[in-house]
Design a protein around this nucleic acid. Sequence first.
DNA 1: AGGTACATGTAAGCTGTTACATGATTTT
DNA 2: AAAATCATGTAACAGCTTACATGTACCT
Lengths: 179, 179
Amino acid sequence: MDVKMLCLGVLSRGESTGYEIRKQFEEGSFAHFQDAGYGSIYPALKKLTDEGLVQGVDQRQDGRPDRKVYRITSRGRQALYDAVNGPLAEDKFRSDFLFMLCFADLVSPRELDRRIDERIAHHRAMLEQLHCDGGCGGTPAGLDFARRYGCAIHSAAIEFLEGHRHELVGALLQKQVAE
Amino acid sequence: MDVKMLCLGVLSRGESTGYEIRKQFEEGSFAHFQDAGYGSIYPALKKLTDEGLVQGVDQRQDGRPDRKVYRITSRGRQALYDAVNGPLAEDKFRSDFLFMLCFADLVSPRELDRRIDERIAHHRAMLEQLHCDGGCGGTPAGLDFARRYGCAIHSAAIEFLEGHRHELVGALLQKQVAE
DNA sequence: AGGTACATGTAAGCTGTTACATGATTTT
DNA sequence: AAAATCATGTAACAGCTTACATGTACCT
């Protein structure tokens, strides 16, 4: 799914602006498994407009910058339907943190410990975010399932890191003494 | 970390060819959190050679195509050290599967069920792969930790999907009946 | 006879990131 | 007075993917 499809997905839940769509990927229900910045969202909305999948209407506001509210078209809904029912690309996951862990022997145990703390804090923040925007009755079942899936993964990560960090740091400290 | 650093990481564990490095990202210890194809590995090795971080030696083989064996240099080791101790980019995770789940109401319950089966099978395959290449005594502590981290995450994903799939499919079936 | 594994590389293209440009209003 | 929020967009660049080009040997 490219940024175009992601925007279409957000717009299928209701009209929105480029700025608001961005927030969905930063804080909202999609934040834990997708990402997109202004530099990809605005061009995507333009292309979607050219293809007739969305329509944008300028809206004047006083005190605030004008904004352009986008709405999905019926052709847009069809395109989303096709994409969701078509073949899906495999997950892509890249983690500098795990890469660093592979070469943990190059990092001081103290620094490693700090980084693991930071990492756990990050997972906790994600968990809180995911717990926040859930639960309200009107949420579609699939969206809520994806949210709870995210909770499960982040919880498991925290549990693993808290349960096993000492083994890693311990092993590295011992190695350091041996040298 | 770009593909250059990934190659440097693999080469820090011992000399290797482009072809073999690729396999590390497809089946080996890095497969669960990084990815790279020939089209990015070969150019990366060339650039690393130009920068003096690796050295490549041509090796003739009979019956098989000649190959070029790369070895990390001391400057290469320093560069890896710097990268691992420097600031790390945040994890990047994009999942078409989770995106599809968000719009599960657009997919038939039957098809959804099939896709969840497939997904669970995929996680099981990853788990098996991760269990395989682990455990041998000589593995550095960090590499093994990253491997077990992967096991924890994939296990949690399986557990969640098996434990909650019926709620999702059930909700969608009910909705279908209601219409 | 056809598929897979071995093995290296290039070129074009697609996608997304980063930095820039602009500017009012509200909060701290 | 400074920083954050609201708000849209472009241009240059970096990075990775895909397709192409080439060829042997082994397995079914």
